[in-house]
Amino acid sequence: MLVEWDWWTVDFGDAHAGAAGALVGGSEPRPVYFDVGSGSDVPSTTHWSAYDGRARRPRADALRAACACGWRSAAQYFLDWDTIGDRPLYEADVDLTGPLADWTAHLSVVRDAAVPLPERLAALLAEIAGQLTATAADVPLAALRAAGVLERIAARVGRETAGALRDDGMPAEVVATALGITRSRALVLLLTAQDG
């Protein structure tokens, strides 16, 4: 199934990617499948824009904010089908500011619960990001090499740190909250450290 997230942050990556989610009859509809002819692979999606009532697909009544972590906003933003008319939703001028604001508020709660980065490290990471972006424009292969080095450093330090936390008996729930990830991802992180 194709999962298309509309919003993403560097802080939390895909753990807290966000989107406007469709509501049909007050609940989240099943995925929409696309008939692409014969074959065993039938593509599907849950992206809000697919729920426009066309080609026997359900028609969304409202949208709400959704997060990859499973969080859903309580607020619903009803679609004005008189204004949308017969157009596909992806062509209509649908206002997503409400769902985006709700998802942003959710991220604030996650960010407030997460362990803060030391100020010096946060500044260094911002500087590295700037340098990598500038290098990518000037010398793309050097930027790619540097990204690989950073990835290996991060993987090694991450394995060692996760292993130490696991050995200290740190609960997955505490790790999840501190890192802004789901409990299942925290468990994987702690268990993977065993193999590292």
Rank of each mutant, 00 (worst) to 15 (best):
V139L: 12
D93Q: 10
S49E: 03
S73A: 11
R87Y: 05
L150S: 12
A75P: 00
S44F: 04
V94I: 14
G130V: 04
A101Q: 12
R72C: 04
D138C: 14
G98I: 00
D112M: 11
D52A: 00
A143K: 04
T46G: 13
D102N: 01
A105M: 10
C67P: 00
A50M: 10
P43Y: 04
P118F: 07
P88Y: 11
A60Q: 00
D102E: 02
R152V: 12
R120V: 04
A146Q: 09
I84D: 05
A75D: 02
A113M: 07
D138T: 15
W103F: 04
D61P: 04
S40Q: 15
T45H: 12
A114T: 01
R57A: 06
E151C: 15
D86C: 06
T135D: 15
C67I: 00
L117D: 07
A137D: 07
E91A: 01
I153R: 15
G85C: 03
G70P: 07
Y90K: 04
D41W: 13
L150N: 15
A126S: 12
D102R: 00
V157E: 13
S73I: 01
A114D: 01
D112Y: 07
S49T: 02
L63C: 07
Y77R: 05
A68T: 11
P118I: 08
W71E: 13
A136M: 02
S49N: 00
G70T: 10
D93Y: 06
R111S: 02
D138Y: 13
A101R: 13
L121I: 08
L132W: 05
D86Y: 06
L144C: 14
L141E: 15
G130T: 05
G130P: 03
A147S: 15
A55H: 10
A55I: 08
R145C: 09
L96E: 06
V157I: 12
A137Y: 07
P118L: 09
P116N: 08
V110H: 01
A147P: 10
L124M: 11
A65S: 03
A146P: 01
P88F: 06
S44L: 03
A74P: 00
S44I: 05
E160A: 03
I128F: 02
T104P: 03
V157Q: 14
W81S: 08
R64E: 01
P118K: 11
H106P: 10
G130E: 07
L132A: 09
S49V: 01
V42E: 13
I84H: 12
G158F: 06
S49I: 00
C69L: 08
L141Q: 14
L117N: 04
P88C: 03
D80W: 09
R64Q: 03
Q131K: 02
A65D: 02
F78M: 01
A114R: 00
A123Q: 12
P88Q: 06
P116D: 06
H47R: 09
V42F: 12
D41Q: 14
L89K: 05
L124I: 07
P118S: 08
W48H: 02
P116A: 06
T97K: 02
E127V: 00
I84T: 11
